[in-house]
Amino acid sequence: MEITANRLTAAAGLCAAAAGAIFLGVQVNHPPADVEHIVTGEMAVRETAKVLMTVLAMIGITGMFLRNRERFGVLGLAGYGLLMAGFLSLFAVECIVGYVLPAVAHSNPGYVQDVLDAAVGGSPKGDIGHMSQLFLVSGIGYALGGLLFGIALFRARVLARWAAALLAYGTTSALALSALPESFNRPFAVPTAVALIGLGVSLWRDGAGAPAAAWVPEPATR
Score class of each variant (00 low, 15 high):
Gly200Asp: 08
Ile3His: 04
Asp34Arg: 06
Arg155Asp: 11
Val97Asn: 12
Asp114Ile: 05
Ala189Lys: 00
Ala193Cys: 08
Ile96Val: 15
Asn185Val: 06
Val55Leu: 13
Ala119Cys: 02
Leu56Asp: 01
Gln133Asn: 14
Ala92His: 12
Gly126Val: 05
Leu199Arg: 00
Gly170Thr: 06
Ala213Cys: 01
Ile96Gln: 10
His30Ile: 02
Leu196Asn: 03
Ala33Thr: 09
Ala213Ile: 00
Asp127Glu: 14
Gly145Glu: 02
Ala18Val: 02
Ala220Trp: 01
Gly73Lys: 04
Ala105Glu: 11
Met1Thr: 07
Gly81Ala: 11
Phe135Gln: 09
Ala16Pro: 01
Ala118His: 02
Ala10Gln: 08
Leu66Glu: 12
Phe87Ser: 13
Arg161Gly: 07
Ala11Met: 06
Gly25Gln: 08
Gly145Met: 07
Trp204Gly: 02
Asp206Leu: 07
Pro217Ser: 09
Gly207Ile: 06
Val190Gly: 01
Ile151Asp: 04
Val190Asp: 01
Leu101Lys: 08
Ala210Cys: 05
Val120Leu: 07
Leu136Cys: 02
Pro217Asn: 09
Ala174Pro: 00
Phe91Asp: 11
Thr62Gln: 03
Phe135Met: 10
Glu182Gln: 14
Thr62Lys: 04
Phe135Gly: 07
Tyr169Arg: 06
Arg161Lys: 15
Gly25Trp: 01
Met53Glu: 15
Leu82Tyr: 08
Val97Asp: 12
Arg157Tyr: 03
Pro191His: 05
Met84Arg: 15
Phe65Ala: 12
Ala208Pro: 00
Arg67Leu: 15
Glu47Ala: 07
Tyr142Ile: 05
Ile197Cys: 07
Ala195Ser: 03
Val137Thr: 13
Pro219Phe: 09
Val97Gln: 14
Asp34Cys: 08
Leu56Ser: 08
Leu196Phe: 14
Val93Thr: 12
Ile59Thr: 10
Ala213Val: 10
Ser138Asn: 13
Ala12Arg: 01
Tyr99Ser: 14
Gly139Asn: 14
Pro109Tyr: 03
His37Arg: 08
Met43Gln: 07
Met84Cys: 10
Gly60Pro: 00
Val115Ile: 15
Met84Lys: 15
His130Ser: 15
Pro102Ile: 13
Asp117Ile: 03
Leu82Trp: 07
Met53Lys: 06
Arg161Gln: 14
Gly129Cys: 05
Asp127Met: 02
Leu14Glu: 13
Leu167Ala: 03
Ser132His: 10
Gly79Met: 12
Lys50Thr: 14
Arg205Val: 03
Glu42Gln: 14
Ala17Lys: 06
Val112Glu: 05
Ala49Val: 09
Ala214Thr: 13
Glu218Thr: 05
Gly121Ser: 03
Gly25Met: 06
Gln27Lys: 00
Gly122His: 06
Ala168His: 05
Gly209His: 01
Leu90Pro: 04
Val74Ile: 12
Val115Lys: 02
Leu14Pro: 04
Ile61Pro: 01
Val190Trp: 08
Leu136Ile: 02
Leu136Ser: 09
Leu153Glu: 12
Tyr142Pro: 00
Arg67Glu: 14
Ala5Tyr: 11
His106Leu: 13
Gly209Glu: 05
Val201His: 04
Pro211Phe: 03
Phe87Leu: 13
Gly81Thr: 13
Gly146Pro: 01
Asp206Lys: 01
Arg205Met: 10
Leu147Val: 06
Ser123Arg: 07
Ile61Ala: 11
Val39Trp: 00
His30Glu: 09
Gly73Ala: 12
Val137Cys: 13
Gly20Met: 05
Thr221Pro: 00
Ile3Asn: 04
Leu66Gln: 11
Leu203Asp: 11
Gly200Thr: 06
Leu101Pro: 09
Gly63Asp: 14
